[in-house]
Design a protein around this nucleic acid. Structure first.
Lengths: 99, 99
DNA sequence: TGCTTCGGTTAGTGGCAACTTACCGTTCGT
DNA sequence: ACGAACGGTAAGTTGCCACTAACCGAAGCA
């Protein structure tokens, strides 16, 4: 999941799909400065973690962003966020006690 | 930001700090199966994007998770989340029209 | 003031992953 | 049925980054 988002090119692909809407593989290859096979491989990774979804229309595959993977990231972030706040509160607590 | 979270070892370090609370560099090196310099380098990266914060106490540096970096990630995710839902709604709309 | 502990930095290496080139199957058009 | 367009896959190369070993400075303790 976060591994998939770790690559800059994959983020560009996601951003392209997000702002430009659903797009074919060839279409993405025109907008993103890498070869078509590279796009294909990245889409495979993004699809494996549920960040994109594809739909066959004729010979072309239309890819779009998908929320499935985002949910996992969101819950992870929410938990992390809560714990970070808690940790900060504890830290302030101890600091206040020790002054 | 997402580059920092892209590395598994860095996520282990973050997870260790999150669940185990603030810790020194040497302490992290004992819990995470990499050398101390590696820990140091990862902490530098994590600190640069505001995911951890350190506090010098004597000769040792105590690291803790920090919310600064999480905020950026959260806003990015929220925006992405909204757009994904919107894109899905549009897709359903077109699908319904075309049936 | 040595001696030790702790930690950041540098130099160098190894492994992985992102990329391209080439190939092949599939589907549409004529 | 033939050719073209589209896209997934395989093989091979390259560049980057995570890691270790070695060195150095800073702060506590006798």
């Amino acid at each position: 999941m976060l591994d998939a988002l770790g690559d800059p090119t994959r983020r560009v692909i996601l951003e392209t799909l997000r702002t430009g809407g659903p797009c074919s593989v060839g279409g993405l290859a025109e907008r993103v400065p890498v070869s078509r096979p590279a796009i294909s491989q990245h889409l495979k990774v993004l699809g494996a973690v549920g960040l994109v979804q594809h739909e066959s229309r004729g010979t072309r595959n239309i890819y779009r962003v998908h929320q499935a993977g985002l949910g996992e990231l969101r819950s992870w972030l929410d938990q992390f966020w809560g714990d970070a706040l808690q940790a900060y509160a504890d830290h302030v607590q101890r600091t206040e006690e020790g002054k």
